[in-house]
Design a protein around this nucleic acid. Structure first.
Lengths: 123, 123
DNA sequence: CCGGATCCTATTGGATACTG
DNA sequence: CAGTATCCAATAGGATCCGG
């Protein structure tokens, strides 16, 4: 995901962190946690994601067994994406982090402003 | 951190996710959770991190008030890095995720292997 | 010992156009 | 509708050299 490290640190947490780290995965998981959704619907609701990244991210999530992909053979064709049990489980865990983020966001913002003021404003 | 999105999605969780997402921050937090540590000592223990990224990452962590930086005026100079209370708090939350990662790692690995087998092996 | 400044390459990811 | 393929600009990050 991110740059591949020179020495590939074999930490079991890395895989998950890489997935969490990328901007869109989490957004998609959160969105799909609300309800299953189709490709273009996701595209509209996520706002800002490119078609390419949506496809790539969904494929990765599916590959990890976090999201299921169901092709409905209709015309026009439809594909439904939904969280798997594992995906929902991860969503729960992410919730912890989101809570932490929410409650610490103001303090962090403040720290940053403070830091930037102390050191050269725009670094 | 990652690419800046065209439409800057103003989600309070993003900041934290970006920090978590980057490879080294979490590693450093985990390391510093064990004990405060000096620059080059960190460099040795983290293994694979470049001098530049260590400096950059530490600076970001300090900026967010997650890590404290204490200059000991000795010869040779020493700088001690340590988790702040907020840093420790985040470390705790990360623990949740690490646990999830540990217990789901095998299943994820399996899913990937399975997926890769089903679709063109190396995609 | 701690780190900033540079240089340079690999990767990321948006835009666009095309297919089933 | 649901993607894939190609092109290309921007960035991340390693290597290296240097100063405090």
């Amino acid at each position: 995901m991110s740059r591949r490290r020179a020495v590939d640190y074999d930490c079991p947490v890395r895989d998950v962190l890489d997935r969490i780290g990328d901007a869109w995965s989490v957004l998609l998981i959160i969105e799909l946690a609300k309800a299953p959704c189709r490709f273009n619907a996701l595209r509209r609701v996520v706002d800002g994601i490119s078609q390419r990244m949506l496809a790539v991210t969904l494929r990765n999530l599916e590959r990890d067994g976090l999201v299921s992909r169901t092709v409905l053979d209709l015309s026009p064709p439809q594909v439904e994406y939904a969280l798997t049990a594992r995906g929902r489980s991860l969503h729960g865990t992410i919730g912890q982090l989101a809570d932490w983020a929410d409650s610490n966001q103001p303090a962090i913002r403040a720290s940053r402003a403070n830091y930037d003021a102390a050191h050269g404003a725009k670094r």
